[in-house]
Design a protein around this nucleic acid. Sequence first.
DNA 1: GGGCATGTACACAGATCTGTTTACTTTTTG
DNA 2: CAAAAAGTAAACAGATCTGTGTACATGCCC
Lengths: 195, 195
Amino acid sequence: MPAAAKPDMKERILQTADRLFYLKGIRAIGVDTIAAEIGISKRTLYNHFPSKDELISAYLKRRFVVAKPSEKSPLSQILGYFDALERRFSAKDFRGCPFVNAVAELGPEDRAVKKIAIAFKESRRVWFRDLLAQLGVADAEGLATQLVLLVDGSIAQDLVRDDPAMARAAKAAAKVLLKNAGVDVGEIGGAAEAP
Amino acid sequence: MPAAAKPDMKERILQTADRLFYLKGIRAIGVDTIAAEIGISKRTLYNHFPSKDELISAYLKRRFVVAKPSEKSPLSQILGYFDALERRFSAKDFRGCPFVNAVAELGPEDRAVKKIAIAFKESRRVWFRDLLAQLGVADAEGLATQLVLLVDGSIAQDLVRDDPAMARAAKAAAKVLLKNAGVDVGEIGGAAEAP
DNA sequence: GGGCATGTACACAGATCTGTTTACTTTTTG
DNA sequence: CAAAAAGTAAACAGATCTGTGTACATGCCC
C-alpha cells in the first residue's frame, strides 16, 4: 500500500526488535523476522540500521533507562525497587535481565554489548549507593554491591524458575542487610512481608 | 590413520562440547566445530548423539554434579562455597552459570533445558537448606533461598563485570544473614574478609 | 578368515542468516 | 511540476547450520 510518511519508523523497528530479541533471544531472531513482523521490507530496516550489530546495540541502549529522581524517601525507593521487581516477575513476558542475557548469548568477545551491560550494572549500583548514603549508611559502596547481588540473583532465579517469590525473598534479605547497617526498616518478618 | 579403538569417544565429545558450549555459547558452536576440534568426522559425532539437542542435554546433565557429603562443619561448608565461587571467578575461563546461560540463550520454550536448569537450582537450594537445618536455623527454607540469591547474583555480576570481589561481597552478605538467623559466624567486618 | 561395529572422508540436501542489488512506487518538499 | 527522500518487492550472493547418504578403511571377536 503506502510507501513513506511512516512516523517514527526507527522507533517502530526498535520496539519490535526489543520485543523479539528479549522474548526469543538475539541470536534466535533474524532481521527478516523483525521486518516481516512490522510489515516492512528488509531494505527499509537496513536503511535505518546499517547492520544487525547496530540494531542490537540500539536495543540495549534503549533498555538502559535511568531512574528518574523521586520524591519518596530513600528507604522506600530501595524497598520499592524489590516490589517493582516482583511485579515484573509476575508479568508473563518477563525473561530475565536483557543485559545479562545478551552477554550470556553473545559471549565475552562482543565488546560493544559487554560495555553497555557493564555501564547499566554500574549505574544501578550507583543508584543504590547514593540512596544508602542519604540514609547515612557508613559503607554505602559495599552495601550497594550486596543489594545488587540480591537483585540480580532474584532475576536469574526467576528466569529459571518463574517464581515471583524470589523478589520477596530478596526484599527480606535486603531488609536484614539494611538493619544490620543501622537503618531502621521497621518490623522484619522471617521471610513474609505485609504489603 | 587409525579408525576405531578410541577410548571413551562419547566422553571426549562431551568434554569438547562442554568447553566450547560454555565458553562461546551453545548457539554459537556448530557440530562441525566440535567434530573438527576433536579431529573426528561429523558422522561419528552423530553416531554418539542423535541430534544437537541431545548433545546439549548431555552437556548440561554432565554439568549437574551433586555435592558429595563433607566432613567439614555445615557452617564452613556454606562459607566455603563462597570461597570456591571466588576461585572460580578468578579463573579466566569462567563464564557464568551454564544453566542460566542455556535458558537465556535457548529461550523458555526449550522445555528439556529448562527442566535440567530448574533441577540444578533446586538441588543446590536443598543443599544449603539441609546444612542450615543442621545449624538449627528455624527458617532454613527461606534462608537457603536468600543464600542462593546471593550466589546467583554474584555469578551474574561476575559474568558481566569480571570481578571476583563479587564473591566476597556475597560471602559478607551471607554472614550477615546467618548471624541474623542466630548462627555464630565469628567476627563480621564491613565487607572485607580475613582469609 | 569373516563379520561387524566403529571410524573416516566427503558430498549433499535443505534450511536459515546477513547483507546487497535491481527496479519500481509513493510521498514530501522546494 | 520535478526532484529527492523513503519505501516496496523480490531475487540474489555467500556463508553457515543441522542432519543424511555413500563409499571405504580399520580393528576386534568368534
